[in-house]
Design a protein around this nucleic acid. Sequence first.
DNA 1: TCAAGATCGTGAATCGATTCACGGGATTTC
DNA 2: GAAATCCCGTGAATCGATTCACGATCTTGA
Lengths: 347, 347
Amino acid sequence: MTSGPAPKKADASAATVGDVAARAGVSRATVSYTFTQPNRVSPDLRRRVLAAADELGYVGNDAARRLRVGHSLALGLLVSNMSNPVYAELAAGAEAEAAAHGRFILVANSDESPARERAYLNFFESQQVSGILAAPVGDVPAELLGLRERGTPFVLVGVAPGPHSYPAISGDNERGGHLAASHLLAQGRRRLIFIGGAHPHVDLRLAGVKRAVEESPEPPALEIIRTQVQTAKVGEAVARTLLRRRAAGFPDGIVAGNDLLALGLLHGLIVGGVRVPEDLSLVGYDDIEFADFAIVPLTTIRHPSATLGASAVRILLGLESEQDVEGRFEPELVVRATSLPVAGDRA
Amino acid sequence: MTSGPAPKKADASAATVGDVAARAGVSRATVSYTFTQPNRVSPDLRRRVLAAADELGYVGNDAARRLRVGHSLALGLLVSNMSNPVYAELAAGAEAEAAAHGRFILVANSDESPARERAYLNFFESQQVSGILAAPVGDVPAELLGLRERGTPFVLVGVAPGPHSYPAISGDNERGGHLAASHLLAQGRRRLIFIGGAHPHVDLRLAGVKRAVEESPEPPALEIIRTQVQTAKVGEAVARTLLRRRAAGFPDGIVAGNDLLALGLLHGLIVGGVRVPEDLSLVGYDDIEFADFAIVPLTTIRHPSATLGASAVRILLGLESEQDVEGRFEPELVVRATSLPVAGDRA
DNA sequence: TCAAGATCGTGAATCGATTCACGGGATTTC
DNA sequence: GAAATCCCGTGAATCGATTCACGATCTTGA
């Protein structure tokens, strides 16, 4: 389609079907059919039309198309924070899959603000996206349900199928949490802390941690520290808090709600003189690229974000069902240097 | 689609200006004016219209609006790789500024592929974006120039104003490169390597490095290693290459084209037994968030990506000119642990 | 009190692509 | 050879918001 002749435009405004029709000597309807139902027009005319379109650099006006057919070729992706590599990866996966089907992704960055989340959902509606991938901060926004009633489907990503009955795909966060805590317990760690924010999927990770603790023959201590958001900055702040109360008892194992938090935590602890993993084992979540480059390479739970994004797109496009993609996102423990058995304490 | 001709419920499909007009007891024109030129309608009617719109959950059809006015409220952002925190930050900055003016950002991820770059520019055209922020991989694509001829302005971001005469904003990459190399030279490093990809802004960083070397009273050795892309993975590969030829001479100072590359490099070198910064000083570029959390915290050049994105948006919206934002993006040396003076070699 | 001007609501035209309904012409069937 | 069928191009209606041009009502000042 990208042939050599540079399209030169006579006038400054974009070419329309009318222009192409005039140049090819056919009606506007024929031009439209050439693009939407190529078999409807004879090979001869098809060639003429395509040639004319190419010469004029015809691009088509999606607004006009949408006005008529009622929906756009774009899919909306709503994430809380693009600076989190997890979402960047999710977006990349979705985007590649969409591109493979001639679709595009509109990315909206809510910055963890429900108000902006709503604003963006309205934007998606005004854009008539044909579907939405959403990783909402908290509850499913009412706007999303409204959109569905009006015919725009959505898939929740990274939010486990819970009490709600919305289409959703996600890694098994509960199982991942269980994996993380079991790993620490198997090393002989007995004073655990879970640190994380109030996100639906983080709650599941915590649930998994709790289950591992409860299943343990001699249940260890488990403390829970809640954070509003899960960024490296917050991780460092938590580390300082922890250091301040060091005398009063210190954990020997930490599960962090995500890798960003873990990275900040790790940095703060090491600056404060804590030896990792000797004094304390740390497990993150997500396995972002930078986990491997950390000051002490981070043990974490791998989470296939890109696959998640791609699968969500396939579901929205009707290529696969929720059942088809099940079991594609199993969490996996990646052991690196922040976790090591406690010396002399092994079973 | 296959449903019968039964009349749809009022709220089953999206409300239109007509619906709002009927409910408020005014004409469609009045409804439109209430939103586009609020002063044109009397306070009384304005209230009635807004109330009716609210009750119906009126969102407006941007396709219809665009078809009429000829351009969208969205701005297009073209980046090469959203997984690079620099671009994520750029996008976040642009996005926040756009949101402050009721605008939206369409993000396109070219994945360093010129073909996808072109496809996305066509998409932007079909979306009638009112402006484009572009960080092209190589040369300015012809499509971008075509778009400008047809009335869609663009601003290049992160690409320094060079021989071309396109509107562009960027940090002073040449100066940043100079800063990085000067820092190494001031420490007594004499065998430098610059590692980086064939991007316009990276070339400028290299030019700065070269200038620092030439200005040195006793010019040190400078080797240049070219990479296709600048990712952590590539950095690790380069580290392995370097280690293999260790006997034949090893650098004592490295300037990396960006932080991702530096991080991979750092990891690869340390795994290979190189002591950083004792054996070798390393300076990255960009100051991404993770530079501070690296296995050895990374010395780097700070680059205000978010500010860059925000400023580009302001220019596209006509709020500021290229001159106004000048000098807002000065590069800055951030010294961390990967660079330290050579012991016993200081001046 | 009346002319001149300002204010503000409305009908109708418009943007560009899609698609329905129609029909001329070629082909097939009995 | 006439009728039934198919192929394929076209005119015209349509989607929903915007905006021009008009006119009705109200204000103001001499």
